[in-house]
Design a protein around this nucleic acid. Structure first.
Lengths: 157, 157
DNA sequence: AATTATGGTCAATTTGATTGACTACATTGC
DNA sequence: GCAATGTAGTCAATCAAATTGACCATAATT
């Protein structure tokens, strides 16, 4: 398999492939650490739950999915021992989803692995280029979404 | 919504968001052109079918999914009038999947839209930066997969 | 010629998401 | 203050994309 193969790919395909590559490594590593029941779909949720918890509606908006989908995901993660539903302090209808201890463990492991992946990328393309890459991607995501973000630009992790 | 928000995101999240952003625009545009029945999952298949067709097994390997999944996808695309199953010239077990005229229309529209998206990105970050971005992503996808590509790095488009 | 391997489909199941219906509580507006 | 409307969450049914397992027909191997 030759490097040249990828140069001919359009940007969208490249973004897809590099995302899949990262996410595959992340989940392989999480599996090795005993977090095999965490799947790609769950990942971004953790970012919204930390540090002080979130309601289902907040998660739904953040992830760009329906509250029903969030509810099911929380069922699963609660069952696996990663999150807990707590009563909302002021709104008796609402619940707050918070991380359990095990939830915090996986969140920290995720953080560490992502940092390591980024570190290895720095070794490949250099710190400046990685910095530029991140800046450019940030700019693009921002420009293209102009305020309407988190409606359909939902991350998979 | 502030640009700063994204700078704090890790690389993996950025890749996810920028990919989603591109793919959303692509499919919005395809919908406007009357190709609303094409969904993100189908996209990368076209790249493998063009120009001279492909067998189910080839598609499965290229996409990194099972042959059964390919078969179903082809059922759907055939039903929508984008592809056709033809008899394999030498192997009586096999079939070749080729694009119909409508299939070619959507493939060309896709090409055009992706080029336009890339063009707009050039206006945002400049041609040099975009070139660098593509080179860096290519290098990373290549390095990280080292030969074992197309097994799990399956594109979603 | 018999065995094994391969290309493709059928059927059942899993995962992640959807739409629609419903309950319990909150907010608004006379 | 209470009736109308709105909102947080769940239940149920369904869809989309993929999986595993079983199977058939043809090819390749020995």
């Amino acid at each position: 398999m030759n490097h040249e193969v990828f140069s001919e790919l359009d940007l969208t395909s490249l973004l897809s492939l590099s995302f899949r590559t990262s996410i595959n490594e992340l989940h392989d590593r999480l599996s090795e650490l005993g977090f095999g029941d965490i799947r790609p779909a769950h990942g971004f949720m953790f970012k919204c739950i930390t540090p002080k918890g979130a309601t289902g509606i907040e998660l739904a908006e953040y992830l760009g999915i329906t509250k029903q989908a969030v509810s099911k995901m929380v069922d699963y993660l609660e069952n696996c021992g990663y999150v807990m539903r707590k009563a909302h302090p002021t709104d008796k209808r609402g619940k707050i989803i918070v991380l359990t201890e095990r939830g915090w463990l996986v969140a920290k492991a995720k953080e560490k692995i992502l940092t390591e992946i980024e570190q290895r990328w720095i070794e490949n393309i250099g710190a400046e280029r990685l910095q530029m890459l991140k800046e450019d991607l940030s700019k693009l995501v921002y420009k293209e979404n102009e305020g309407k973000l988190s409606l359909r630009s939902r991350p998979v992790w």
